[in-house]
């Protein structure tokens, strides 16, 4: 199977799952923004995405994307380290043009995964998982009270800061990941490379700002 036994194939898997995850983030970010305007509307969305069959299927699909993306990341990294040989350079210099993020995608990805774990514990476990196991009051609030959970989470300054760190890592990860996916899929050339890089920077910034905005607003709300 070329998606596993050729280097481009493996990269295609990374790209496709990556792009799908970017789409998910876009949707998630848009959903979060709803909370800024109306708690009720947000909760309605939460209810809609509760333990329904379609939401569950989507969740499983999403989880699969994550797992594949992460497993491939480790696999590629192990292969790449082996390809580098046993000796390491004594002196390293990063040439201009080479983004810092591009050389640290795995580390950034790990931060993103850790943040994800936190996030799942804070929200998903208490909201969707609670419904699945049939204990809708797991986190002290009703499972569909997303608004309440947001308020609760961002009242904690430690969590707030951790979320911001997480989002920063995500930003770096996305700025490289996005155009890199286009390059891997072959939709690139000397003209488009700069366009894609510009698009990835803007797009990543929009997504990350969207998430950050919700966190900041709710953190402030709690302060007042």
């Amino acid at each position: 199977m070329w998606l596993s036994n050729s280097s481009i194939g493996r990269k295609v898997v990374m790209s496709v799952t990556g792009v799908a995850l970017v789409l998910f983030l876009t949707f998630h970010m848009a959903m979060n923004l709803v909370a800024l305007f109306s708690g009720e509307a947000y909760n309605a969305v939460c209810e809609f995405l509760g333990a329904n069959w379609y939401a569950l299927v989507a969740t499983v699909g999403l989880a699969a994307l994550f797992v594949i993306h992460i497993l491939y990341a480790f696999w590629l990294t192990i292969q790449n380290r082996a390809a580098r040989g046993n000796e390491r350079y004594a002196v390293n210099a990063r040439p201009k043009n080479v983004e810092w993020a591009s050389q640290n995608m795995l580390a950034l990805g790990l931060i993103v995964v850790l943040g994800l774990g936190l996030h799942l514990a804070n929200f998903w476990y208490k909201m969707q998982f609670a419904e699945i196991v049939g204990n809708p009051m797991m986190g002290g609030l009703h499972a569909a009270d997303g608004y309440g959970y947001i308020m609760q989470t961002f009242s904690n300054p430690v969590l707030f800061v951790l979320y911001l760190v997480w989002l920063a890592a995500l930003w770096f990860h996305l700025t490289h990941g996005f155009w890199s996916a286009m390059q891997t899929l072959g939709w690139n050339n000397t003209i488009w490379i700069n366009r894609w890089k510009c698009i990835s920077n803007i797009y990543s910034t929009v997504i990350v700002l969207g998430f950050a905005l919700v966190a900041i607003v709710f953190f402030c709300k709690n302060l007042c």
């Binding site: 280097s7 590629l76 790449n80 580098r84 040439p95 043009n97 080479v98 983004e99 591009s102 390059q183």
Partner: peptide, 19 residues
Amino acid sequence: AKMDELGFGNCTNTRACEA
């Protein structure tokens, strides 16, 4: 296929090569 077989790594688009 030959490149993969010979143990070269997977490209992650860092652009160091080009630089």
